[in-house]
């Protein structure tokens, strides 16, 4: 079933839309959640929550790409759950490593932030991503959007893990410089 047909079901408030969505994108959403949570039960619950969220959001929203619409929902829900599970201490799992890596992008400073905080971080990151060569951008998003392990990314792109790590490190450095130019600093 095409996305447009599924979305039409949502607009008709036909509950089969949820089943169709689960069938088409359930595994995809699960893998996104599982990359973050590494807990199949939690990930399944995230998928269910994502489907419910989609049901609540469509309409009025009308996604152009249902798959990516769901991906963002699943990712956010999984990350919320991850934070809840790891509120007290950060464990040594893959997601913790992803967050540690991102921490490198944020320079430490006690001031100036207020001056720039109104800037839209989302827009700044999108603009930054558009400056990257395509491969670097995709590797970056595999790692920091989908939270995929470096090993999997290396396999997907036919590179060795060291190569991917180097690409990620350079991209993080560029992002850090970009954020600094835009006035984003790490809270101390």
């Amino acid at each position: 079933m095409q996305d447009t047909e599924i979305i039409e079901l949502y607009f008709k408030r036909d509950e089969s839309a949820i089943a169709m969505t689960e069938k088409a994108y359930g595994k995809y959403c699960f893998s996104i959640a599982e990359n973050i949570l590494h807990n199949p039960q939690d990930s399944e619950e995230c998928v269910s929550d994502a489907l419910l969220r989609a049901w609540q959001s469509i309409p009025p929203q009308k996604p152009t790409r249902l798959k990516l619409f769901l991906a963002k929902i699943a990712r956010n829900l999984a990350f919320d759950r991850y934070r809840m599970r790891h509120a007290e201490k950060r464990s040594g799992d893959e997601m913790a490593v992803v967050l540690d890596e991102l921490e490198e992008c944020i320079a430490s400073s006690e001031d100036i932030e207020a001056e720039y905080e109104q800037k839209d971080l989302k827009e700044i990151i999108n603009a930054f991503l558009r400056t990257l060569p395509v491969r670097e951008r995709q590797i970056f998003l595999r790692r920091y959007f989908y939270a995929e392990p470096v090993k999997d990314i290396a396999n997907m792109f036919g590179l060795n893990q060291n190569h991917v790590s180097v690409i990620l490190k350079r991209t993080r450095k560029k992002l850090g410089e970009h954020l600094k130019e835009e006035g984003y600093f790490y809270e101390t």
Binding site: N76, L99, E103, C105, K122, N126, L129, F145, L179
Partner: peptide, 13 residues
């Protein structure tokens, strides 16, 4: 800004 904010912002790509 925290790294978690950055992770969330990347989620809005």
């Amino acid at each position: 800004m925290k790294h978690e904010d950055l992770f969330r912002a990347i989620g809005e790509t």
